[in-house]
């Protein structure tokens, strides 16, 4: 798969495969095209080369890298979870418990800390019971302890839903330790050899 914009390849020769129940990492430095790759896999941006094959009726849950919610929007935690679909109260409770936010009550999302907000987004993504979870640097801006906790939560969700997880990160060590597979993206200026 490749994506070509403004006279250059943003990413090229990306070949990644996620099976049900697997945890696969995409690792890369800033600007290597990790988010671009993720968005292409989700179908948010078109690809210019290659193909993306999805299982039949594949349901994807997505946690974007950065999401800023305008504080003038009075969204509570539970209301955010109900944003795209009318989930039952029990489902909402379950998702909140799964990400460990049950003790917070129902605060406005604008008052959540960075780590809490990431976990809330994770809860939002798991509510649709996806076959694949795509997480774009979920631990970004979260301290080491928080990141550990987050990755434990992700693991539990993966086991519970039996879904595949594609996680974008820049932590190669983490990927080697916990991932079933990983892919490293390198910012490339040296691709001319196969631009035919």
């Amino acid at each position: 798969m490749g994506i070509y914009r403004s006279n250059r390849w943003l990413v090229r020769h990306v070949d990644v495969k996620v099976l049900r129940g697997q945890l696969v990492y995409i690792i890369g430095a800033n600007g290597a095209g990790k988010t671009t790759t993720a968005k292409a896999l989700l179908g948010l941006i078109p690809t210019d080369e290659g193909e993306i094959r999805r299982g039949p009726a594949l349901k994807v849950g997505y946690v974007p890298q950065r999401l800023h919610i305008n504080p003038t929007l009075p969204l509570t935690m539970r209301r955010l979870l109900r944003l795209t679909e009318r989930y039952k109260n029990t489902e909402i409770d379950h998702a909140i418990t799964a990400v460990g936010l049950q003790r917070l009550g129902n605060p406005f999302v604008s008052t959540l800390s960075g780590g809490e907000f990431q976990r809330l987004l994770l809860a939002q993504a798991m509510l649709s019971r996806p076959d694949l979870l795509l997480l774009d640097e979920p631990a970004q801006g979260v301290d080491a302890a928080g990141a550990d906790k987050l990755h434990n939560i992700i693991d539990r969700i993966r086991i519970e839903l039996g879904c595949g997880v594609l996680c974008i990160s820049h932590d190669l060590q983490l990927a080697m330790d916990t991932g079933d597979d990983f892919l490293v993206l390198i910012p490339h200026e040296h691709d001319e050899m196969d631009s035919t």
Partner: peptide, 11 residues
Amino acid sequence: STVSEDLAKVA
């Protein structure tokens, strides 16, 4: 889509 256009598209 006010919250996130990407989330809206994924949904």
